[in-house]
Design a binder for these strands. Structure first.
Lengths: 158, 158
DNA sequence: GCTTGACCTGGAGTGCACTCCAACTGGTAG
DNA sequence: CTACCAGTTGGAGTGCACTCCAGGTCAAGC
């Protein structure tokens, strides 16, 4: 398999494949008589895993570190496992954050929908306008200090 | 509240706050006699929401677009809602991807743990070494073509 | 033999999102 | 009065992760 085929199969560009090789994310492939890269299909599994690491927020440095450990073989098993465990924690945390955001968005979308329907939305003061030239609104609402642990409700200000 | 206080309360640096203002993510604040920025505490809610959008993967362009709509007031409600709904879909998709990755990682961590314990792990051929100078291994395993819908098992190659 | 197209290399350029810096000013404490 | 500190500006620099390009080589088809 040459670089063009691999690009097609992996979804990466030839430039990106060469770049990954240059920085050490991918092992240097064999070359044919003309000096062209020849790839084993097995590399696709590696590219796929790298891609998953990337798309779940692992930066290039850690991917490089992992790639480097991989070349060291069985001796690096523990270190690789630890790296993956760290990433696992990060991913788990991200899922929590995203799930919270889903709630925030749903609240806000709902609020907007109600406002679009002309419903009066309160007690949050509706102030989407810039405060720049406006006189500071004399707040009637005594400043909502919400109890700890309570997520602030969606507000129209944002 | 001056920029230093806001930096402390928001967790952003003064440089970042000024940068956000420059690109239009944050409204231009009032100034005191000496030309220094004076912020209303309400801005914290906006910064917090911006931060959430960012940390859930919304790029600066979309955040800018949203910020711009916000300055337009009630007229932009529908557009804002649509933008948030788009982001909601993205976030929901991300959660799915991350959750899948959690499984992949758990499988792999488990595999590594078993390998560390000296367990023979098969049928995946253990080839962490670079193939560069090695003769292509004569594969005994007939190439695992897994059924569609079946997630490939964790492999020792990566 | 010649053209075409895929490939090669090294290096420059891009976009995002800050981050840092120099040179200056304005308010306050000792 | 002076030192200090927080703030001001415009602009340069950084790190990531590619992406593009010029100028060249090589193998295969007509």
């Amino acid at each position: 398999m040459r670089i063009g085929d691999l690009a097609e199969k992996s979804g990466l560009s030839t430039d990106t494949l060469r770049y990954y090789e240059k920085i050490g994310l991918m092992p240097r492939p064999l070359r044919d008589g003309g000096g062209r890269r020849v790839y084993d299909a097995a590399i696709l599994r590696w590219i796929d895993f790298l891609d998953r690491l990337k798309s779940t927020g692992m930066g290039i440095k850690d991917r490089l570190h992992y790639a480097d450990l991989r070349t060291k073989g069985a001796a690096s098993l523990t270190e690789r496992r630890e790296l993956l465990e760290q990433h696992r924690q990060k991913v788990a945390g991200d899922i929590v954050r995203l799930t919270e955001m889903l709630d925030v968005l749903d609240d806000k979308i709902d609020l907007y929908r109600r406002m679009e329907a002309g419903e009066t939305v309160d007690p949050t003061f509706e102030s989407c306008a810039r405060t720049e030239h406006a006189a500071p609104p004399s707040k009637k609402v005594p400043k909502d200090e919400h109890r700890p642990g309570t997520r602030p409700r969606a507000d129209a200000e944002t």
